[in-house]
Amino acid sequence: MASRISEIKGNKNNIEMENLSRENKLVVPLDKVEDDWMRTVGPLHIKAAAEHYGVFDHLYGDAYFVPNVALDVFYTSGADEVPVYRGNTLKPSQAANCPTVNFEAEPGSLWTLVMTTPDCHLESENSEYVHWLVGNIKGGKVSEGETIWDYLQPFPFRGVGYCRYIFVLYKQTGPVDYSALKKTLPCLNLSERTFSTYDFYCERQDLLTPAGLAFYQADWDSSVTSLLRSTLNMTSSPVYSYDFPEPYRPPQKWFPLKQPFNLYMDRYRDEKQIAKEFVVKKLKRTHPFKPPEPPLQFPNCIPFKKGTPSWLKLEMRKERLGWGRINDY
């Protein structure tokens, strides 16, 4: 405390610093700020970010921890280093190779590092895939630890959006026997990578203490397709899309009064029948060998045939202008 006060007093008496600050030219060194931040309030900020991303909810249920050990994780893709902080976005191609993990550890202390994703499990909604698990890391040297699951790059499927990839560092009180989890390496069967952090921690809670946390988010890119086909030997790579809730349709009435009948009826028609009509119309217009006709500049100036009912005119106008359902098929 005394040293802090003297440092602040030193700043206050520094005329050069005062002038810089007054002229808005004072630039704080961000890397040094981050070092001090990690030693002071950083762990609480990491915890707040993890709560924002639902990390503790999905890994430990109701429990949480304050990550007091600074976990420095970065990927090396090509010439540049891609760091992992607490929720930043990465591309799977950047995370293709095993990351470098550094943390401060006393010599002889034992650690366990787990990388899991709680999102987009293929078999069960509440399970995780373990991407990397190294146990009994002595003195912070991850490469010399006991690899239980080898590193597998993230594979968020196309269309699912952003998945979380979470690194959790545990401190061990003594050597932990991981022989029950041992798999034949490299482990390329996804169901063998099914994991539950909650169960894993419950079984070993006397030996392990969570100490560090880092996570990132990744969405699909082309490297996922090649990973699924070449490494995981899958014949196809899936494309998913978000399942929007069905639009609300009020229950049908016996006598729908004061409503245009065509719009009312369209709301309750069979979707397949509608699709069929639109596709048949489209196929009639297209010729297999001729190029499509250029669109008209003023499509609505073509006169309607005499005696066309008004509801049909509306449909024809919509078709000419490309409004409504015609865009779906």
Binding site: Y53, H58, L122, F157, P238, V239
Partner: peptide, 14 residues
């Protein structure tokens, strides 16, 4: 999807 499950869940709240 084809051989994959028809529904998967992304639990990421963000």
């Amino acid at each position: 999807s084809c051989s994959f499950p028809s529904y998967i869940y992304n639990r990421n709240p963000r």
